[in-house]
Amino acid sequence: AQASVVANQLIPINTYLTLVMMRSEVVTPVGIPAEDIPRLVSMQVNRAVPLGTTLMPDMVKGYA
């Protein structure tokens, strides 16, 4: 199964992502692939992302 990117903490709206904020986990539904974690660093979330939430492409500015 493919691992997705999951929030490792509460990520406030407009926060620039860093490695410590994200982890990879096999979840349903599938979100942003874990292999894209390096690409996500320094990208901004466009909403608050609670701890344990799967990151979806529409949550990250400029990802989709």
Rank of each mutant, 00 (worst) to 15 (best):
2 Q>E: 15
2 Q>W: 08
3 A>K: 08
4 S>L: 02
4 S>E: 01
4 S>F: 03
4 S>D: 01
5 V>A: 13
5 V>N: 01
6 V>G: 01
6 V>M: 06
6 V>A: 04
7 A>H: 01
7 A>T: 11
8 N>V: 11
8 N>M: 12
9 Q>I: 14
9 Q>Y: 14
9 Q>C: 05
10 L>H: 14
11 I>D: 00
11 I>F: 02
15 T>Q: 12
15 T>N: 05
15 T>M: 13
15 T>W: 09
15 T>H: 06
16 Y>A: 15
16 Y>M: 15
17 L>F: 03
18 T>D: 05
19 L>T: 15
22 M>V: 08
22 M>L: 07
22 M>E: 00
23 R>Q: 03
23 R>W: 04
23 R>H: 04
24 S>N: 13
24 S>A: 12
24 S>I: 15
24 S>D: 15
25 E>H: 06
26 V>L: 14
26 V>C: 04
26 V>A: 15
27 V>M: 06
27 V>A: 07
27 V>G: 03
28 T>W: 04
29 P>D: 07
30 V>I: 14
30 V>Y: 15
31 G>Q: 03
31 G>M: 03
32 I>C: 03
32 I>R: 01
32 I>D: 00
33 P>V: 08
33 P>Q: 04
34 A>Q: 12
34 A>D: 14
34 A>Y: 12
35 E>H: 12
35 E>K: 04
36 D>P: 00
36 D>S: 12
36 D>V: 07
36 D>C: 06
37 I>M: 15
37 I>S: 08
38 P>K: 10
39 R>F: 14
39 R>H: 08
42 S>A: 12
42 S>Q: 13
42 S>D: 07
42 S>E: 06
43 M>A: 08
43 M>L: 10
44 Q>I: 13
44 Q>G: 04
45 V>W: 01
45 V>Y: 01
45 V>R: 00
46 N>P: 03
46 N>H: 13
46 N>R: 09
46 N>Y: 14
47 R>H: 08
48 A>H: 06
48 A>T: 15
48 A>P: 06
49 V>F: 02
49 V>E: 01
49 V>G: 00
50 P>E: 15
51 L>I: 13
52 G>V: 02
53 T>C: 04
53 T>P: 01
54 T>D: 01
54 T>R: 07
54 T>S: 06
55 L>H: 01
55 L>P: 00
55 L>E: 01
57 P>N: 06
57 P>E: 06
58 D>L: 08
58 D>I: 12
59 M>E: 03
60 V>W: 02
60 V>R: 00
61 K>V: 15
61 K>E: 08
61 K>H: 10
62 G>K: 06
62 G>P: 06
62 G>R: 05
62 G>M: 12
